[in-house]
């Protein structure tokens, strides 16, 4: 079975580790973790993800900048990105009031069910 590749970019290794462990346990995803934002583009080029999970607030380079760099690469410009953020509440994530370029975003802490649903929605669309 062709597993979907998800690139998870967050400066907190314990978060990317938790996401990797959970999603890979489902058997339908292959996960690569990036905890150093400047390495994200290189990892994406190598990994060729079907979807990117991207934290917004990170040292050195924030999620918006990482997304912009990914969009500059022709092979990655159509890769869906789901932003993860700790600075908005669940209420703000509802009602289509996207803050960042019409992308999806999820408010931390997100539970596994919501995360899988959001990933599947983007992968189907």
């Amino acid at each position: 079975m062709n597993r979907k590749r998800i690139l998870v970019i967050d400066d907190e290794a314990s978060i990317t580790r938790g996401i990797k462990l959970n999603l890979e346990a489902l058997g339908t995803f292959e996960i690569r973790q990036v905890n150093h934002a400047p390495d994200a583009v290189q990892s994406a080029l190598e990994f060729k993800p079907d979807l990117v999970l991207l934290d917004i607030v990170m040292p050195e380079m924030d999620g918006g900048e990482v997304a912009a760099r990914l969009r500059e690469i022709p092979s990655l410009k159509d890769t869906p990105i789901i932003f993860l953020t700790a600075i908005v509440s669940h209420e703000e994530t509802q009602g289509g009031e996207a803050y960042i370029g019409g992308e999806d975003y999820l408010a931390k802490p997100v539970d596994l069910g919501t995360l899988v649903q959001a990933i599947n929605n983007r992968l189907i669309n």
Binding site: I15, G18, L21, A86, K108, D111, L112
Partner: peptide, 14 residues
Amino acid sequence: VKNPLMILGMGTDY
């Protein structure tokens, strides 16, 4: 607080 909660949540989900 939300990042540690995310870690805990992912752990319990697992």
